[in-house]
């Protein structure tokens, strides 16, 4: 069994990866991964992408005016249903 797993082609290993990862298996301990520099480089790339995304796209603050718009939209809706005070109009 272990030998079969080690002798996988890169294509076969990579085709199995989504399932392996989905099943929660530790990919780093897979015999093919341990013996294959190309596949290790592939997964390192994917980690690099995740890391880049974290750094390049921090959580951002919406503009303050957005709350004012939401608030007046809420008032409009409330006004439509119970004809309460509707702000400016």
């Amino acid at each position: 069994m272990t030998d079969d797993r080690k002798n996988l082609s890169c294509a076969a290993f990579q085709a199995q990866l989504p399932e392996l990862i989905g099943s929660g298996e530790n990919v780093a301990s897979h015999p093919h991964f341990q013996s294959c520099e190309l596949c290790r480089a592939l997964l390192a790339d994917l980690e690099t992408i995740a890391e880049a995304a974290r750094q390049l796209f921090p959580i951002v603050e919406p503009p303050d005016e957005l709350w004012e718009q939401i608030e007046s939209a809420i008032k409009n809706e409330d006004g439509r249903t119970d004809s309460g005070p509707t702000g400016q109009d």
């Binding site: 890169c10 480089a41 592939l42 690099t48």
Partner: peptide
């Protein structure tokens, strides 16, 4: 739904083409 087209088995080239340090914001967006 897992897409039917998924076949990540294509040869992906040499390891010296790794992405480390080369990702810029616009390209990633």
């Amino acid at each position: 739904e897992p897409a039917a087209e998924e076949r990540p088995g294509r040869n992906f080239g040499a390891p010296d083409l790794t992405l480390a340090g080369t990702i810029d914001r616009l390209a990633l967006q």
